[in-house]
């Protein structure tokens, strides 16, 4: 049968078996594989999506039940490449291990925060009661949802944003860089003539490369090993 669905703000017209589950249409016909099937009986919550803002198990809902309604899946959480605050907090708090429950967890948490922007820990645990996780013991997940709702907490993980900062790489000092440049240029020139330079053919760094007053031996030869 012909179905008109609105998923993540996009309208889709799909041809589906009348008994097709919402999960099947999302995954098999719309290619939205973020919604997972863990049990097929509405017990594990891996297939959780929002229908008109409410969390439902898409494995025990027929696609026809979602006609004319707004469906939101995990793929619709990030906006313009920017992660939803929940997604961001799941990353920061180490709430993801195998990740198979993650999309469903995110959607249940999203529905909770839409209805109750500052939930208590108990509210969070009850809201996630229908989402099973076998990896995490839920601590990090609960912490992430709390953090997304504005509770103060210390993020557990190195953030992708921070990675850049931590990875602030040291550049080659100008003198050495000049040498590198010379070698590369010389090598390129020679390569054009077809004779690769020998590895030992470094130009002398010359006196200026050694800053005045540099010690001749390190104070602690073991340091940094």
């Amino acid at each position: 049968m012909q179905l008109l669905l609105t998923v993540n703000g996009m309208q889709y017209e799909v041809e589906a078996r009348p008994t097709a589950r919402l999960l099947d249409v999302l995954r098999d016909q719309l290619g939205l594989i973020g919604t997972k099937e863990g049990c097929g009986e509405g017990e594990c919550g891996a297939c959780t999506v929002l229908v008109d803002g409410r969390a439902v198990n898409s494995c025990v809902m027929l696609a026809v039940q979602a006609r004319g309604k707004d469906v939101l899946t995990v793929e619709g959480l990030a906006q313009d490449g920017e992660l939803d605050v929940l997604q961001q907090k799941f990353v920061e708090y180490g709430a993801v291990q195998c990740g198979y429950c993650t999309p469903g967890m995110l959607m249940s948490a999203k529905a909770l925060l839409m209805a109750n922007p500052v939930p208590s820990e108990q509210d969070i645990r009850i809201a996630l009661a229908g989402n099973l996780c076998r990896c995490t013991g839920y601590s990090a997940i609960v912490a992430a949802v709390k953090a997304a709702s504005g509770h103060d907490a210390t993020p557990a993980m190195v953030l992708p944003g921070e990675a850049e900062e931590l990875a602030a790489e040291v550049s080659t000092d100008p003198e050495t860089l000049a040498i590198v440049q010379e070698v590369v240029e010389a090598a390129e020139a020679e390569l054009i003539q077809g004779t690769p330079p020998a590895p030992e053919a470094f130009p002398s760094p010359g006196a200026p490369a050694m800053p005045p007053g540099a010690p001749t031996a390190p104070a602690d030869p073991e340091e940094g090993e």
Binding site: A55, V56, A129
Partner: peptide, 9 residues
Amino acid sequence: VGSVQIRNA
């Protein structure tokens, strides 16, 4: 009854 998801449907 069940979970939030079940109660919603």
